[in-house]
């Protein structure tokens, strides 16, 4: 992958419809003595077409939050809704890229079959499924690995497959849980730019969880900082950077450095 500037179709600012609304969300694991209060009271919203990054220290409940948004678990308090509808199970049109790429792909399926997996029995014809899978693989730059099995690919490649799987699903909302936490720095930078490019092209509303402050500022339109447990939203920052970003030139902008420092301070003083 090249690491040069990200092409974006245009710089239209996102529309102002709230797509994802989280109100007073709380989650406690277990009960009695062993209860763990992972999320206390989390409130924020995400607009359509927005790229929101959520940062917080390890164990802050970031994964828990995403799992609630994905309908994989029911919150103990409060609620999350998508397009005005309360989330009670996995919502239609929501895709997720999991933290542990090695375990989120089916080892018995080829790459292209993994990408097409969510489209099975969805009224999508076999031919169309294949076409959409190949197109998605094309857009993450690994179409030539379509016939391989996931375990034949490197970690970064595997995460591309996971991203392609999300894309082929053509979601409205994409949740990403520390997707690049365990790949090397160069690969990570490539994957960040890939994610940005895809988001700009498709306009998919994206919620990106990370513990890396640089990453959050570089990728996000807004950065939501979570506190330590019991977790609430500490602060929300708008990112005053142009939507078109570049790993070198964006990161040398004073706005970038400033925001990065501000977010870091916010987390330090938690």
């Amino acid at each position: 992958m090249s690491t040069t500037s990200i092409e974006s179709i245009d710089d239209v600012s996102p529309s102002v419809n709230v797509l994802l609304d989280v109100v007073g969300l709380g989650k406690t694991y277990g009960s009695g003595h062993g209860a763990v209060r992972a999320l206390d009271d989390v409130t924020f919203s995400v607009e359509e077409g927005e790229f929101v990054c959520i940062v917080g220290p390890s164990g802050a409940g970031k994964t828990t939050l995403l799992r609630c948004l994905a309908g994989l678990m029911t919150p103990s308090q409060g609620q999350a809704s998508i397009a005005g509808e309360r989330i009670s199970g996995p919502p239609r049109g929501l895709a997720m890229v999991f933290q542990d790429y090695g375990r989120s792909l089916m080892p018995w399926l080829k790459v292209v079959e993994n990408v097409g997996f969510p489209l099975r029995n969805k009224g999508v014809s076999k031919a169309e499924r294949r076409e959409r899978s190949m197109a998605a693989l094309e857009s993450v730059g690994i179409a030539n690995f379509a016939q391989k099995h996931p375990w034949q690919l490197s970690g970064g490649m595997q995460q591309r497959v996971a991203i392609a799987r999300a894309l082929a699903y053509q979601p409205q909302v994409l949740l990403m849980d520390e997707p690049f936490a365990s790949v090397d720095a160069q690969t990570r930078s490539d994957l960040e730019d890939l994610t940005l490019r895809i988001q700009r092209q498709s306009g998919i509303t994206t919620v990106f969880v990370t513990h890396d402050i640089d990453e959050s500022v570089y990728l996000g339109d807004r950065v939501i900082v979570l506190t330590k447990p019991p977790t609430t939203v500490s602060q929300i920052f708008d990112v005053p950077l142009p939507r078109e970003r570049d790993p070198i030139s964006t990161k040398e902008l004073p706005e970038f450095a400033h925001l990065r420092a501000t977010v870091m301070r916010a987390i330090k003083t938690l």
């Binding site: 309908g71 994989l72 997720m96 999991f98 542990d100 375990r103 997996f117 969510p118 099975r120 799987r165």
Partner: peptide
């Protein structure tokens, strides 16, 4: 692997 089951759930298979 619970992750695989979560994948199946999120993608509503």
């Amino acid at each position: 692997d619970p992750t695989l089951l979560a994948v199946a759930k999120v993608y509503r298979v």
